[in-house]
């Protein structure tokens, strides 16, 4: 596409005119400020590529002389912010309240009036004179270990002034959830209350365990002989190792359930389960004895696990 056309300027446009044209398209069409406008996104992409070329006097001159073409200037595949913006775990989603949705029934009360219900808000105090307002909330992001998120724990965050603050991590907290530390935010005006510290948590991955709500999933490698003959095998859980019985004739992908070995979510006593997914691992070396036995066994006992597997 012709970069001048993409920006809607003439070939003789000045640098200032080009910038002005680009700005106008950003304002009208940037996909992050106009979500859901597909045509706008295309206009913006074309304009951005054109601007990259034309803002550089040297490149512009080379393009004008026909030494380079506009296609060479396309931006690498860009991840727009809106690809993350609507996600449930977007830490920037904010905690804007719905304090003004007073007409909704109590059914939605915890959603619409949850977060700041007991805070005072702002206002004039006629009895005592002067203006009062609660302090602003301060936002932080904190990565916590998998175990601390599962079982609870404590850690520290560093405040902007360099001081540090102890944070209790409630057990069962999940990626993207926010811990509110009352009164640890910005200073109030007058007789308002101090703001809160809002700490959005991201849970670090664990080398063995994966969280699925209040369940823990783990992959357990077993030997061929354990799979064939059955075995008692030790498996790690978040609260220490446990023995599981691998049933005789187990297959890869089979899942054993250890009840009550998962995570207890906040406010619940019951723990989820640990799901143990079996994975048969071949011996590091296949010796002649094993190969001969298998070849022999196959002659009389062939079976087809892929039966009915047609696309």
């Amino acid at each position: 596409m012709d970069p001048y056309e993409a920006l809607g300027v003439s070939k003789t446009a000045t640098a200032a005119e080009i910038k002005k044209a680009y700005r106008k398209i950003v304002k009208e069409s940037h996909p992050d400020i106009n979500p859901g406008d597909k045509a706008g996104e295309e206009r913006f992409k074309a304009a951005a590529a054109a601007y990259d070329l034309l803002k550089d006097p040297e490149k512009r001159a080379r393009f004008d002389r026909g030494e380079i073409d506009a296609s060479g200037q396309e931006r690498p595949e860009q991840h727009f912010y809106r690809q993350y913006a609507g996600a449930q775990d977007n830490p920037y989603r904010g905690t804007q309240g719905f304090d003004d949705y007073e007409d909704l029934s109590d059914f939605f009360a915890s959603f619409t009036r949850g977060a700041r219900a007991e805070r005072g808000g702002a206002g004039h105090d006629h009895m005592h004179g002067g203006f009062h307002a609660d302090g602003a909330d301060m936002r932080y992001r904190l990565e916590v270990s998998f175990m601390d998120a599962a079982l609870g724990g404590s850690t520290r965050i560093t405040l902007p002034d360099g001081a540090s603050l102890e944070v209790q991590i409630p057990r069962g907290i999940a990626d993207g959830q926010t811990i509110r530390l009352r009164g640890k935010g910005g200073a109030p005006i007058g007789k308002g209350r101090p703001g809160d510290a809002l700490i959005t948590v991201s849970v670090a991955p664990h080398k063995l365990f994966r969280r699925e709500g209040d369940n823990i999933r783990v992959t357990l490698p077993i030997t061929i002989d354990e799979a064939i003959l059955g075995a008692k095998v030790e498996v790690p859980t978040i609260s220490g190792p446990v023995n599981v019985t691998v049933p005789k004739g187990a297959s890869s992908g089979q899942v054993l359930r250890l009840r009550g070995r998962g995570v207890a979510l906040r406010g619940k006593d019951a723990r989820g389960d640990q799901l143990v997914e079996l994975k048969i691992v071949a011996p590091p070396k296949v010796d002649d004895a094993l190969a001969d036995f298998m070849a022999d066994w196959r002659k009389k006992n062939s079976y087809d696990p892929r039966k009915g597997m047609t696309a």
């Binding site: 992050d32 979500p35 609507g86 449930q88 920037y92 989603r93 904010g94």
Partner: peptide, 12 residues
């Protein structure tokens, strides 16, 4: 940016 976040959160 805060307003953009609000718009995206509300849209979601």
């Amino acid at each position: 940016m805060g307003l953009i976040d609000q718009v995206h959160a509300l849209r979601a």
